[in-house]
Design a protein around this nucleic acid. Sequence first.
DNA 1: CCAGTATCCTGCAGGC
DNA 2: TGCCTGCAGGATACTG
Length: 272
Amino acid sequence: MPELPEVETVRRGLGVHLGGRRVVGVRGRPVQLRRPLDPEHLGQRVTGRRCLGIRRRGKYLLLDFEGGVLLGHLGMTGRFARCESGAPPAPHTHLVLELDDASELHFVDPRRFGFLTWLGEHGEATDPALAKLGLEPLGEDLVLALPELVRGRRAPIKALLLDQRLVAGIGNIYATEALWRAGIRPGRPGGRIARRRLEALAGAIRAVLAEAIEQGGTTLRDFARPDGGSGYFAIHLDAYGRQGEPCRRCESPLAHTVIAGRTTAWCRHCQR
DNA sequence: CCAGTATCCTGCAGGC
DNA sequence: TGCCTGCAGGATACTG
């Protein structure tokens, strides 16, 4: 569920709680996450170092420390929780960073699709996942770039939007929403969409991501509640999860198909 | 190179 | 009430 806006919200929350703090200890047991997590090894690298700030790239979080970067991904169910020192960890807590203000940052991830990895001084430039990421939908001119990115491609436009090598940060929810807003059928081959309509799609992507980030900002106070509140939020959704319900433009019931292995709700009437 | 599918994992909803 | 099945999906390995 965490897509670009949710990750951006987490980034801001981490900035408040972790930024400027020094790690004084690391706890956890080895566990197979998306990448293997070895808390003892990680502790040797990060203990004693101060967090200088947090960046985001696509759905990845880059926690800048003195002398290295801690790379994180939330997967489907990953979250960070700020806890008082010594507080009992929630189930599926895989890593605890003990901080110099008598607080702890817990990394919790029931489905283990996320990860935390120490990249070291120069790892950021060579990490294979980061290297493959496409452009930032909010940071560069997506309107100009999107038509070039999908030119000649026969895959469904929705599959292309989900491909992090083209555009980084879009997931199933915001791909579904942007296509509904732009009036484009999710299964339409990307290379067979008129330039003007792709430009409209790019605008819809930017708008829906920006609105979601704004929404997240208002719920930032909920960040990292140890009781399970994750800082995620439900923005106003027009299409995602609304199959069978009336389209908010034309009232006809939304259809439901699977594209790139993901459920997709869309309007047969006004998405062409 | 491109497109499509299987896989990892747990929690939860729905059916019977 | 309780068990079972299927679904949720981000990234990537794999197949054709």
